[in-house]
């Protein structure tokens, strides 16, 4: 359940940016979560509902965009989205370790007023 740690840090970044913009309220936070980041969106949502109490984000909505995993084969350079956790190149069947996307844990944007 590291989602509570992640949300606490997300909220700290959000509050810092909202304050810098003289915002009085945060209405919406949008996060980008990679499908291979190890983060469970439901757990993130649960932690968010607890963490926002007593802050200017108290009534805010959390929107989570999922970023799919994409890889590039180091042998034949094919870019592909693996259908499961085994990242096998569909062209030459090489097993790939590195991902291009899919590991993100980001705060993308805030809606404030």
């Amino acid at each position: 359940m590291h989602e509570l740690s992640l949300i606490t840090e997300t909220l700290a970044i959000a509050l810092r940016n909202a304050e810098a913009e003289n915002a009085q309220q945060i209405h919406r936070l949008t996060m980008a979560i990679g499908a291979a980041s190890g983060v469970v969106p439901d757990a993130l949502q649960f932690a968010f509902d607890v963490a926002i109490q007593g802050t200017i984000a108290e009534n805010a909505e959390l929107a989570i965009e999922t970023i799919p995993v994409t890889c590039q084969c180091p042998q034949c350079q094919t870019q592909f989205s693996p259908p499961d956790w085994i990242y096998e190149c569909p062209t030459c069947q090489t097993l790939v370790s590195q991902t291009l996307t899919g590991r993100e844990i980001q705060l993308k944007s805030l809606e404030v007023s």
């Binding site: 992640l6 840090e9 997300t10 970044i13 940016n17 909202a18 913009e21 003289n22 915002a23 009085q24 309220q25 209405h27 996060m31 980008a32 993100e104 844990i105 980001q106 705060l107 993308k108 944007s109 805030l110 809606e111 404030v112 007023s113």
Partner: peptide
């Protein structure tokens, strides 16, 4: 004054684990 400012979007795209 402390009236709320206009609704607007702040684009951040920051890694939560950056720290």
């Amino acid at each position: 004054t402390h009236t709320p400012t206009l609704p607007r979007t702040l684009d951040l795209t920051q890694s939560v684990l950056a720290k």
